[in-house]
Design a protein around this nucleic acid. Structure first.
Length: 431
DNA sequence: TCTGGGGTCCTAGGACCC
DNA sequence: TCTGGGGTCCTAGGACCC
């Protein structure tokens, strides 16, 4: 049996912790460059704002009280750590699935699990100020579904029985009530059923979750895929997806950004991919891997008129490495290769592919020992400085004096307020 | 004028090998 | 002139997730 603990409107809730005046008001958190809405408060959802909607299309709602905020990912990561450590108290093992969600195994747990979940939810709210929903089911897919019901029952009274609000335990629901709940839920709400598959299922007469539960898994596989077959079986209570406590290291690492305004010249593109390669290298060293292929891409805006540009190139490295200077060189080489004047670039990025375990100096066998030490020490020093003083404080100079991101039209990232960087610094509210 | 970023898994088809 | 069958690896693209 599994529980899924999920912070409500997570980024908005994090902002409200430090700005309580935003409680009860429509709030959106915007992506990089304030491009589009990536989190919405309930009030903002009620205004009809969709996930991912561009800011320019909803800007007029400011007159109606909509509050836009630039994202502060450092803060959200910090709040996430606190929420996760409290959620872990629900059961013996935990899988952190995303910044605001974790699955908890409830295997071997005795007693009233619904009550236990309610007290964990209350503790998270009291200690972090983050409201969350908890769903319990016999498989991860059912726990996800239960979580959806818990949040929807709270946000839209009458959509489901009130008793299921905030904490929804499907394992203790009488069969008839369970059927009612499944019938009241659209098939597209199921974890693993996206827009495309949902449309195909509707076409085939499968409208509600109840319809999907009653589908023959063999049919699901034949007409769709093994993925849908697994989903159907999970909904039927057969565990196909296991808890992943310690996720494998990433198989690829990306750093990509849209520009604040279009970029046509080569030098700013080179600076951009240099910065991306630097960031990607930090992530690479953090998980203890080496890369042997660097992919560089740039493209024009798919939303704008004009000549389209969309190119990428994979630059092989002489040997696996995690050395920022090699990554930057490869990224610059790649950008020079794909660049062509006359196009308005809207986005570029660097991806590290073909990752393998290893530390930075393993790829440097041809260097003298002292040089290896220097290299490693240099990379470590850079990582440390950047952690302490903020991303991009130090980086490899690839084209002379380095510029700040804002010169290619990007906003500086918001930083975690100093007083929230450590768990111990946070005053804990007492009952 | 203005439209996020970072991942995973699965499948089909081609290249290549014996 | 006749030209198999099976396996693996790689890549691109699609669908999904938050």
């Amino acid at each position: 049996m599994f529980a899924l603990v999920d912070g409500n409107n997570f980024y908005v809730s994090c902002e409200r912790v430090f700005r309580p005046s935003l409680v009860g008001r429509p709030v959106v958190v915007l992506s990089n460059n304030d491009g589009c809405a990536i989190a919405r408060s309930n009030e903002a959802k009620d205004m009809g704002i969709k996930m991912g909607e561009p800011w320019f299309a909803i800007k007029h709602l400011e007159h109606q009280g909509l509050v836009p905020l630039s994202a502060n990912f450092a803060l959200y990561g910090d709040m996430s750590d606190r929420m996760m450590s409290l959620a872990a108290g629900l059961g013996p093992s935990q899988e952190i699935y995303s910044i605001d969600e974790s699955f908890i195994s409830l295997q071997g747990m005795r007693g009233d699990l619904t009550n236990r979940a309610r007290s964990v939810r209350a503790r998270i709210l009291q200690w972090t100020d983050i409201p969350c929903g908890i769903g319990i089911g016999s498989t991860k897919t059912l726990a996800k579904l239960a979580n959806h019901i818990a949040k929807t029952a709270e946000r839209k009274p009458g959509s489901y029985p009130d008793i299921l609000a905030q904490v929804c335990n499907l394992t203790t629901l009488p069969a008839r009530d369970l059927n009612d709940v499944l019938q009241a839920t659209q098939v597209g709400e199921v974890w693993g059923v996206g827009r495309k598959i949902a449309a195909q299922l509707q076409e085939a007469g499968v409208h509600t979750v109840l319809d999907l539960v009653r589908m023959d898994p063999v049919v699901a596989r034949r007409r769709w895929s093994v993925v849908l077959e697994r989903t159907v079986r999970e909904l039927q209570g057969m565990q196909c997806i296991t808890l992943d406590e310690a996720p494998e290291p990433k198989k690829q690492i990306a750093c990509t950004r849209s520009f604040g305004h279009s970029v046509t010249d080569l030098p700013p593109l080179i600076e951009a991919v240099s910065a991306f390669a630097t960031r990607a290298g930090e992530k690479l060293r953090k998980q203890g891997s080496l890369t042997s292929q660097v992919l560089v891409f740039a493209h024009s805006s798919p939303f704008r008129e004009g000549p389209r540009f969309n190119r990428s190139v994979v630059v092989p490295l002489r040997r696996p490495t995690a050395d920022t200077s090699h990554l930057v060189n490869a990224a610059v080489l790649g950008m020079r290769r794909i660049y062509e004047p006359g196009y308005k670039m809207a986005k570029a990025g660097v991806m590290l592919l073909d990752l393998a375990p290893g530390s930075v100096h393993q790829g440097e066998l041809d260097l003298e020992k002292d040089q290896v030490k220097d290299r490693t020490a240099l990379m470590q020093a850079m990582d440390k400085l950047n952690r302490r003083y903020g991303k991009g404080t130090v980086h490899i100079a690839s084209t002379g004096p380095t510029k700040q991101p804002k010169e290619w039209g990007m906003k500086q990232e918001r930083r975690t307020p100093q007083y929230t960087t450590k768990w111990e610094d946070v005053p804990i509210a007492r009952a």
